[in-house]
Write a protein that binds this DNA or RNA. Structure first.
Lengths: 209, 209
DNA sequence: CGACCGGTTGACTGACCAGTCAATCTGTCG
DNA sequence: CGACAGATTGACTGGTCAGTCAACCGGTCG
């Protein structure tokens, strides 16, 4: 068996296995032994690399959320309309789901939407995303792209809420999945939040797919 | 001690105690003995009235969700614009929170947002709400009040997502609470989802409080 | 009074599982 | 080689609770 000097990264294998197990069974019905088995590793090794079962989930969440926050920051740094910024953020999150649905499922279901369990610990981190989105809205209002009257905090909540709700719909098979659906969702999220549902004379309807 | 023939309703006392305990500690860190103690009742009596700890939560959820579904149905039966229907639904949910924050916290945090635990069992029931909201949107589109192009399912998701996200904000103190805030939230949810964030010439900004 | 019964009690049990730890393995370096 | 260090193993322990159950209580009825 070809293996490099430091051997295969067992820590990484445990994290990857944990994603699969947590996605399949849910965090709190997963036993540490399930994760060890899935990783093909002895029970005790999990505790060589992690202090606790919780810490595994913390690690998964923080790794990914940092990437998200950084992506939002980069989007915001570009000189493009706010609507396009929101589209880029929705895209990033949707594509994250497309690329690794199990990981996103775990993060959303077990952390983000579980605010009284793990979310509690990471509330600050989660809120960072809202704050960044609110800043985008606030600037767009100041510059006249978005109308005033809707508080930026609120708009951020609604935007993030829509994104999370759509992912949740995919996760629990309430919505069809697929490349077409992913692209359509990005467009519809932005179109709903920015354009609204109201019919406004002279404003064209959204183009189909 | 004055007590009527059938004695005080111990079953109800257990349910009410459960709401307080689950809201305070979260469902899965609450012990059945915590609920019994809070209700001032012996441990075993809980199992006289309920088959399991889970069934207590199921009961709380179903009781309340039925009321919500019925309220949505009644709203939809009225001959008023869709925008007002959505406002009435948002009002109902927000007022439910105002009236009994602990109960709504438990329902949202432990059931609605916990789709892989309890939500799984009640997915159908939860989805009923989406379906009813989508029907409102669909009709409004057919009648020209809402523009076409945004699928009703999607609009329902975004609307419900915004409401749930706001409640979550209150529950975890990310948003200020209070009568003013509740009224403002109702208006802003509807204004965001129906009116959108975009500035549209000739459309007035939202009035303040 | 005495039998009966639903409501009520709380000690107890059985299962489960996170986390520990002593032993073993593997590789490296002098 | 031999000794040391870090990686790896998995049996075991301690604590936690959900759910059970045998006993008890207080009212009702014949």
């Amino acid at each position: 068996m070809a293996r490099s000097q430091p051997a295969v990264d067992k820590r990484r294998m445990i994290l990857d296995a944990a994603v699969r197990v947590f996605a399949r069974q849910g965090f709190h019905t997963s036993r540490v032994s399930d994760v060890a088995d899935e990783a093909g590793v002895a029970y005790g090794l999990v505790y060589h690399y992690f202090d606790s079962k919780d810490q595994i989930l913390d690690t998964l969440f923080l790794e990914r959320w940092d990437i998200l926050l950084q992506a939002i920051g980069e989007v915001d740094a570009q000189a493009i309309p706010a609507r396009e910024k929101l589209y880029a953020i929705a895209s990033f999150i949707v594509d994250s789901y497309r690329h690794d649905p199990d990981l996103m499922k775990v993060i959303i279901v077990e952390v983000t939407r579980a605010a009284n369990t793990f979310g509690r610990t990471h509330l600050q981190q989660i809120q960072n995303a809202y704050v960044q989105i609110a800043a985008i809205v606030e600037r767009a209002q100041r510059e006249g792209e978005f109308r005033a009257g809707i508080t930026p905090d609120f708009a951020a909540l609604a935007f993030y809420g829509a994104v999370e709700q759509v992912l949740t719909g995919w996760i629990f098979s309430l919505l069809p999945t697929g490349d077409r659906e992913y692209e359509q969702a990005k467009a519809l999220i932005v179109e709903t939040i920015c354009g609204g549902l109201d019919r406004v004379d002279g404003r064209p309807a959204v183009a189909g797919s």
